[in-house]
C-alpha cells in the first residue's frame, strides 16, 4: 500500500475541490486516515472503489464515533481491496452533533456491505445517511427515540434490583423511591446505631 500522502495526492487530482486532511493514528498502530468533507465524500469513495490502482472493493467496517468535546460525530469507513489484497484506506467524515444536521452521504449504493453497518450507526449515533435505501433502526426497537451510544446519553431511571450495588448504581438506587439494596440497608442500620 502506498503512503497516505500519495493517496491523498491522487484523490485530490481525481476529485477536484475535495478538501482532504490526514489524521494520524497512534505511533504504534500506523493507520493514518483521510478526513474528507461531506460534499465530496461519495465521489472520493467512488474513485477509490473504481480506480485500478486502489480497487477498494470491500467496505469492511463502518462505525461512528462521538467526539462530544469537539462537537462532531465522525463516521469511519475501513476500505480493503480484495482483488489487490491491500488496505486499509480509512475514510473519515464529520458531521455536527445536532440531530437535525447530523447527516453524511451514504456509501451503501457503492458497497452493499455498508447497509447494516450504516443502519447501526444511525441507530446508535443518530447519523442520518443520505441516500441509504432503507434507513431504519436495527438493534434498538423501532419505538425507541434516543441514540444510546452518544456520549451525552443518559439511561432512563429504571433501576434493576441489584443486591451489591455501590457507587453510581447505589446513588441511583437511592434516588428511586422504594428500592433500596440490602447492602445499603446494612449501612443504614449501622448509621442508626451510631
Amino acid at each position: 500500500m502506498e503512503a497516505i500522502e500519495k493517496i491523498k495526492e491522487q484523490v485530490v487530482a481525481a476529485v477536484p475541490g475535495a478538501q482532504i486532511e490526514i489524521i494520524p493514528s497512534t505511533p504504534a498502530a500506523q493507520q493514518p486516515a483521510l478526513l474528507v468533507d461531506r460534499e465530496h465524500c461519495f465521489a472520493v469513495a467512488k474513485f477509490l472503489k473504481e480506480d485500478p490502482r486502489f480497487q477498494m472493493d470491500c467496505c469492511s467496517c463502518v462505525t461512528g464515533v462521538d467526539y462530544l468535546a469537539s462537537g462532531f460525530i465522525e463516521v469511519v469507513y475501513h476500505l480493503y481491496s480484495m482483488a489487490l489484497k491491500q488496505g486499509p484506506v480509512i475514510l473519515k467524515v464529520r458531521a455536527p452533533r445536532e440531530l437535525g444536521q447530523c447527516s453524511v452521504p451514504s456509501l451503501t449504493p457503492l458497497w452493499r456491505g455498508g447497509e447494516f453497518q450504516e443502519r447501526e450507526a444511525y441507530d446508535l449515533y443518530g447519523v442520518k445517511f443520505e441516500g441509504h435505501p432503507d434507513l431504519r433502526r436495527i438493534l434498538m426497537w423501532d419505538e425507541f427515540t434516543d441514540h444510546p451510544m452518544r456520549k451525552d446519553y443518559t439511561p432512563p431511571l429504571d433501576y434493576e434490583w441489584e443486591p451489591t450495588a455501590h457507587d453510581e448504581t447505589l446513588a441511583r438506587a437511592r434516588a428511586q423511591e422504594g428500592i433500596v439494596p440490602p447492602s445499603a440497608l446494612v449501612e443504614a442500620d449501622k448509621a442508626k446505631k451510631k
Partner: peptide
C-alpha cells in the same frame, strides 16, 4: 494505559 489515537485490527 494506551496512547491517544485510534486503530483497527482484524
Amino acid at each position: 494505559k494506551v496512547p491517544e489515537g485510534d486503530g483497527y485490527a482484524r
